[in-house]
Amino acid sequence: MAPVYEKTGVFTGQLVRSARAAVVAAGPEVARFATRDILSRRDLTVSSDSQKVTLGVIAAYVVVIAILWNVPYVRWSLWPFKMLVIAFHEFGHAITAVLTGGHVKSISLDPREGGVTHMVGGKSAITLPAGYLGSSFIGALLIFCGFNIVASKIASLVLAVCFLLTLWWGKRDWLTILTILLAIGLLVACWFIVHAEALRFVVLFIGVMSSLYSVWDICDDLILRKVNSSDASVFAQRYGGSSQCWGVIWSIISVLFMAAGIIAGIAAFPQSFAQQESDSKNFLPTR
């Protein structure tokens, strides 16, 4: 759902500064794991069993999610993750509003209509596409991190900061609060399963669903349901073109983000399962 612009609001600068600090703090560790193997392996050969399994899991996730998304009744099994991805979507609107000089009043999620971000100011040319493209970009990063256990641990820490920001903006909405708390609980639980090996597959699942959310949701909004208040519709009204055209463009960009995340993951993380588990034992060990 398109963000709602209002005339008054409260700036959450302290939380935003905390988010930036967390990303900066985690950045060197992510860079160390990524550049170490990129420099030593410049080809994109899928050589390790870990990479083959990861690619197979990604393909299976795409098929399973696509089926469950469209099958009546069964599609409700995706509801908790769909709410989480919608939270990413609204976070994209909110964070770009803040970064372009606006203020965020609130975020709320709706089990039928999706979500809405109430904001003040900001550059609508950026904030409107930032919902779909922001969730797709987050999804691509999660897919990239899902190729490695330690990277998945770091991704979960950065996600925690994003969740806290979303929780702050959605503090008056019970569904937003419940969704975020369940997501945090799931990530924490996965840290304690086989040195967080389960964490990377959860991170992968969320990443795939978030990467392709724009494709499926835009099809729902513009082809099946014709929702007039979609981001693409509002963007077309303000800047020209058709909602279908912008929806297709954003979907293509989302798929490209996902492909980039997969390619980067193959290039950066060739480690075997045993090596990943060994690295995980030395980075914030849980067992």
Rank of each mutant, 00 (worst) to 15 (best):
W79R: 09
W79T: 11
P80V: 07
P80Y: 06
F81T: 06
F81P: 03
M83I: 01
I86W: 00
I86S: 01
I86G: 01
A87W: 00
A87E: 00
E90V: 01
F91N: 08
F91I: 06
F91P: 05
H93W: 06
A94L: 13
T96R: 07
A97Y: 12
A97T: 13
V98A: 15
V98Q: 13
G102T: 15
H103E: 15
K105I: 15
K105G: 15
K105H: 13
S106T: 11
S106K: 10
I107E: 07
I107F: 09
S108V: 07
L109G: 02
D110N: 12
D110L: 04
D110A: 08
D110S: 06
D110K: 09
P111G: 07
E113V: 13
E113K: 14
G114D: 03
G114K: 02
H118Q: 15
H118A: 14
H118C: 15
H118S: 13
M119D: 09
M119C: 12
M119K: 10
M119P: 14
G122F: 15
S124I: 12
I126S: 15
T127C: 15
T127E: 13
T127Y: 11
L128H: 10
L128I: 09
P129S: 03
P129D: 01
G131P: 00
G134S: 07
S136E: 02
I138T: 06
I138N: 07
G139A: 06
A140C: 10
A140D: 02
A140G: 07
L141I: 04
L141T: 02
L141Y: 01
L141S: 05
L142T: 04
I143E: 02
F144N: 03
C145T: 01
G146T: 08
G146K: 11
G146E: 06
F147W: 11
F147L: 10
N148E: 10
I149S: 10
I149Y: 12
A151N: 05
A151T: 01
S152A: 09
S152E: 11
I154T: 05
I154A: 06
A155F: 00
A155I: 04
S156D: 05
V158D: 02
V158N: 03
L159H: 04
A160L: 12
A160C: 11
V161K: 05
C162L: 13
F163P: 00
F163A: 00
L165P: 11
L165W: 08
T166Q: 04
T166S: 06
W169T: 09
R172P: 14
D173M: 07
D173K: 04
D173S: 08
W174H: 12
L175H: 09
L178T: 09
T179E: 00
I180C: 01
I180F: 01
L182R: 08
L182I: 08
L182H: 07
I184N: 02
I184C: 03
G185H: 05
L186F: 09
L186G: 04
L187R: 06
L187K: 06
V188L: 10
V188H: 10
A189G: 14
